[in-house]
Design a protein around this nucleic acid. Structure first.
Lengths: 224, 224
DNA sequence: TTTACACATATTGTATACATTTTATTCCAG
DNA sequence: CTGGAATAAAATGTATACAATATGTGTAAA
């Protein structure tokens, strides 16, 4: 993926994660191509990449749509995050160098200082960075690879089932988790990560009938 | 991904997993396109998909190459397989229906009956199916999604670092694991899965200096 | 003989034109 | 007005042409 496609990719991904592009919205190739001043070819490549990350769903001959996660799919995402993050945080406790921990500490510090006046978008960004930092400390690139996708998917899930106002407790949890890692207390770190993820999940209102269609035609199409 | 691309995809993937296409070999778009009687466009899509699965590495302006896994990367694959498969087998013990277990039993039966005269290719195929069946029983699509890739990657890793003659003990292990799942003995199943994966990993000869370059120019390029 | 430059070839990257499919509109019959 | 077929428009799928890049070859000068 070259710099041109990367630019388009980052923009669209950010728009989805930041909930500017809502689930079920169609991403028309031509529109995106014109917006970025390129042909459809690189746009199609980007949309495919996003579909592999499950942020976009491509339906043959119909187009690319921002993914709608069903309740079951959402539960799967949280379940897999728990599995991966529990393992990651244990590896992090064992493998993180003092220097890495110091750097990590600064990240948590920044998050604490900004969370008062931070808007929703910033909070998502910061929270994601925290979780990915643990994946990084775990020293297995697959943690990062998988969790990067799962965390992005979580943003979409929250935009579907979440409350409008995000909980403020998040970064206090983060600080506690950080402390546990720093003390290399694997059991405590695991416990806190599980509690943290559960708390996020519990803020959601899983209503199976909920639908936020991009258009009325989509709505009635989905009801077939 | 439509049927045309799927056909090309399955062929190339199989060729890599079955070790017909060796690591570092270049996959030239035009050649593949002509072989399948299509233009380069769908071929490029397939190569990209394979690159997301880490079976192919795309280098900008150079082309697509069958992935070469370093020793560290190989270790990461086994480590992540262990994490995911341990969790998957536990879920399988809890969630598998009697009907699923029966079906699973038939699969293991077939594997046992054919393993005497089975060639290497068949053995890879069968083994993969066994491990993916557990992922399926675990009722979280991410197990299947991730393990499908990791298992394919394992084939390539074995083709790099493995012995020419595969161990025959594999499907006996499989049978034991199956029994543990059937008895819903999570702890035993976990223990057997870990041992099984470790045994596969132990048959490998991790020699960091080992290289099977596709060409001499590649070899000396890697030595810079 | 070796090196460096120019040229030729091969491969990938991008844009565009055309084909196919889906979706929307129109218009007419009931 | 309603329903439905015919038509038009829009979107995606595919092939092809051209551009950019990398690779390989050959030739001339040192």
């Amino acid at each position: 993926m070259n710099s041109k496609e990367l630019e388009i990719y980052k923009n669209i991904k950010q728009a989805i994660v930041h909930q500017k592009l809502r689930p079920n919205m169609q991403l028309v190739e031509k529109e995106i191509a014109e917006a970025f001043g390129v042909s459809r070819t690189p746009v199609r490549n980007v949309l495919r990449k996003l579909s592999y990350e499950r942020l976009v769903k491509i339906i043959e001959n119909k187009g690319a749509f921002v993914t709608w996660f069903s309740v079951n799919e959402a539960i799967e995402v949280f379940e897999m995050r728990r599995i991966l993050e529990v393992n990651a945080v244990r590896y992090a406790c064992r493998l993180a160098t003092e220097e890495q921990l110091h750097e990590f500490g600064k990240l948590v510090e920044v998050e604490l200082n900004t969370y008062q006046d931070a808007d929703y978008i910033e909070a998502i960004q910061m929270s994601g960075k925290f979780h990915l930092k643990i994946a990084e400390l775990a020293r297995n690139s697959y943690f990062y690879l998988y969790l990067e996708d799962l965390i992005s998917q979580t943003s979409v899930i929250i935009s579907i089932y979440g409350e409008s106002h995000g909980k403020k407790s998040t970064c206090l949890h983060h600080h506690h988790i950080y402390n546990a890692i720093q003390q290399r207390d694997e059991d405590l770190a695991e416990k806190l990560v599980i509690e943290h993820l559960k708390e996020i999940e519990d803020t959601l209102h899983f209503d199976e009938n909920l639908q936020i269609p991009a258009s009325l035609s989509d709505l009635f199409q989905n009801m077939l």
